[in-house]
């Protein structure tokens, strides 16, 4: 927001920026291994690294509450659900040769083209935009809770109904038919 005041250049990064870059490289590397590894269980474990790195990025952006929610929900439950899914579908433990589809070169082309285009647009648009991280944290539990329960109460409650519906749907879908014990 301090466009006129002469933003700091890219050649003299602050400590937060250095930390953000290092954690970002680790996160991106873990994400790359997640989508390219041939061992299915390792993909889930590398996903933990990627999601945990994102939690650290949220902390660096002063969004504490989001960071802890990320750790609790993604690392704590979503990855565990994915591991359960891998084991219930009898995923091979070792290297599986057919982890990647036959159209992986087309996929690589699409992803690389999308990355090049989006990076170009984003860098061009936000080259001189500066986030002011000083002052009180904008994502502490107090601030987030106040805004959530003052301004976002109705979506919040609708979301709890959605979670209940998803829970009932998952139970109905995964129940065995005829009620037969197996």
């Amino acid at each position: 927001m301090t466009l006129a005041a002469g933003h700091p250049g890219f050649l003299s990064p602050t400590g937060v920026e250095v930390a953000f870059l290092l954690v970002g490289v680790a996160t991106l590397g873990a994400a790359l291994v997640t989508v390219t590894t041939k061992q299915l269980v390792h993909a889930a474990l590398w996903l933990v690294v990627a999601l945990g790195g994102l939690a650290i990025e949220y902390l660096l952006l002063t969004a504490e509450f989001i960071a802890w929610v990320q750790v609790l929900i993604y690392v704590g439950s979503v990855v565990v659900l994915l591991l359960f899914g891998l084991m219930l579908t009898k995923a091979p433990i070792g290297r599986s040769a057919d982890a990647d589809s036959g159209n992986r070169w087309a996929a690589l082309t699409v992803a690389a083209a999308a990355a090049a285009t989006l990076v170009w647009v984003v860098v061009d648009a936000f080259r001189s935009t500066w986030i002011d991280l000083s002052g009180a944290a904008q994502g502490s539990a107090k601030v987030t809770g106040a805004s959530l329960f003052r301004n976002w109460v109705l979506p919040f409650e609708a979301l709890s109904v959605l979670l209940l519906a998803a829970l009932v749907g998952a139970i109905v879908l995964s129940r065995r038919k005829n009620g037969a014990p197996s």
Binding site: L21, T27, A31
Partner: peptide, 19 residues
């Protein structure tokens, strides 16, 4: 912090997921 860092990281993560 430059806004470009989180924006570019988000773009790259999105494209890795797309792949």
């Amino acid at each position: 912090m430059h806004l470009g860092y989180p924006a570019v990281l988000a773009v790259l993560l999105f494209c890795v997921g797309l792949y």
